[in-house]
Design a binder for these strands. Structure first.
Length: 276
DNA sequence: AATAAATACAACCGCTCTTCT
DNA sequence: AAGAAGAGCGGTTGTATTTAT
């Protein structure tokens, strides 16, 4: 690690105090100054932004404000059901790699997704009195809640093209979701979560999963895990449907606009190449 | 209507990685 | 090649808003 070379935290703090650095919520005036500057000069060189505009903010603070709030592409409002599902799915793969997950949710920021996870998902884990990373909770999410979420999305979309079709590529190797024999949807358990810290290459390798010959085995695994997930909810005296309703209740299905099938597909191709 | 508790989200902090000189 | 500066990430905190009592 190279860390704070000449600038120990204490020294930086002293410098900031000398500069009379402002902290806390941004005012409309500050927003306007920052917005205009970035529009004229583009993103980057955030420390220079602070210096040139006269804003009494650190470069870091300017960058964060732009990325999370002022940037025109930032999308605000409720997280849709599709987005919720994607967040859950991607979190299974990559864990708390919020910026990476955010790449798949156009207009959403890593901060927003992180907050969603903490406030909604972790809350559910807390109510069940278990760790958010425990197998039990993960099973409950993966084999009970996520399929329910999918069903709800499917029920809400008046189309032969379902969210499953949207997320699922037309052929292997990338299989995110499948339809179960019973007609309900399930999430491919072979898309295993990973704690790998490397990016694109290893991620792509990890996505080469679930050969068709494994299908029977997959279903068996799902049946067992769904049972486990339901058992867990019952053990805690929870009404699964009620909890799901509470969790995703505020979400809406996004039928048009930003997130259509083509966009999703393009996104997947951009990320995973022509194999998708 | 007042107040306490819970929730949601914006912003900050510490650290690491990347780029520049 | 090495050090400094810039940029980015994930975790945490602070605060405004909403909900419950």
């Amino acid at each position: 690690m190279r860390g704070f070379r000449c600038g120990e935290p204490q020294k930086i703090k002293e410098e900031e105090e000398e500069m009379d650095v402002r902290k806390g919520p941004w005012t409309a005036e500050e927003d306007s100054v920052l917005f205009n500057y970035v529009n004229c000069h583009g993103e980057g060189r955030w420390n220079a932004v602070a210096r040139c505009t006269g804003l009494k903010r650190t470069g870091k603070s300017c960058r964060l404000r732009w990325l999370n709030y002022l940037r025109p592409s930032v999308r605000r409002g409720n997280i849709t059901l599709q987005e919720q599902l994607l967040i859950l799915e991607l979190h299974f793969r990559w864990g708390n790699r919020w910026s990476k997950i955010a790449q798949y949710l156009p207009g959403r920021t890593d901060n927003e997704i992180k907050n969603y996870w903490r406030t909604r998902v972790q809350k559910q884990a807390k109510q069940l009195n278990c760790d958010v990373n425990s197998k039990q909770f993960r099973d409950a999410m993966r084999y009970v809640w996520m399929p329910r979420l999918l069903e709800r999305i499917q029920a809400s979309t008046d189309s032969t093209t379902t969210i499953v079709d949207v997320i699922q590529p037309p052929h292997p190797p990338l299989e995110l979701t499948q339809s179960s024999p019973s007609g309900s949807s399930w999430v491919n358990p072979h898309v295993a979560p990973t704690t790998s810290s490397s990016d694109s290459i290893s991620d792509q390798v990890q996505l080469q999963v679930s050969p068709v010959s494994d299908m029977t085995e997959n279903f068996n695994m799902v049946d067992k895990s769904e049972e486990d997930g339901m058992m867990m909810l019952m053990e805690h005296g929870c009404d699964g449907e009620a909890m799901i309703n509470e969790w995703i209740g505020g979400g809406e299905v996004l039928e048009n606009g930003l997130w259509n099938e083509e966009d999703m597909w393009t996104l997947l191709q951009q990320q995973f190449g022509d194999d998708v």
